[in-house]
């Protein structure tokens, strides 16, 4: 799980003599490469931009898009857009949190699942909708969500024994 993080120096080098207005693009670039924002990252960005860690963390936590834990093997996105909401995504969200034992933005301890809330996945015809590692699962119910998660858990176990 704890794969060594990629060096972010090349990313920092893309922003020479940068100041605080480069913070958000920098965070986005780093997250793109590393999948999340680590403590080490915050410290090195802070040194590069001459900003305190608290400030960077404050900005990063203001936006939903930044995460502070690595993605799980299966990254579950739940749509909380208008159409999905009307079709009952609030309950689906609760089911997911309970089943996975994590809050939005977190990754389960075993590293298998992570959960993210998104505003719209652009497939309102399938509402309510979740997306796992890019694969859409439409018209979900509490039961079907549990089934979907079970299938992924099984898949993970199988891969683990094969390794």
């Amino acid at each position: 799980m704890s794969a060594p993080l990629t060096d972010i120096q090349p990313i920092l080098d893309r922003y020479p003599n940068a100041s605080r207005d480069a913070l958000i693009p920098l965070l986005q670039d780093v997250q793109e490469v590393q999948g999340f924002i680590s403590k080490e990252t915050v410290v090195s960005i802070g040194k590069h931009l001459n900003l305190p860690a608290s400030k960077i963390y404050g900005v990063a936590t203001f936006y939903n898009q930044f995460r502070f834990q690595p993605l799980g093997r299966y990254h579950v996105q739940i749509c909380r857009g208008t159409a999905c909401h009307v079709k009952g995504s609030a309950t689906i969200f609760e089911t997911l949190k309970r089943e996975l034992g994590i809050e939005a933005g977190e990754t389960a301890r075993d590293g298998q699942f992570s959960l993210e809330v998104v505003a719209c996945l652009g497939a309102c015809g399938l509402a309510p909708l979740i997306c796992v590692n890019g694969k859409f699962h439409g018209n979900v119910t509490g039961d079907s969500v549990r089934k979907i998660l079970r299938a992924y858990r099984k898949e993970a176990k199988k891969e683990a024994t094969n390794e």
Partner: peptide, 27 residues
Amino acid sequence: VAAIDFTGRGSQAQVGPAFNEGLNVSS
């Protein structure tokens, strides 16, 4: 020193050190 700043947003906003760590390991 800037050991603390606003973190989070809306009803979850609070003032604290980076990564909600304890003050003891902050600056």
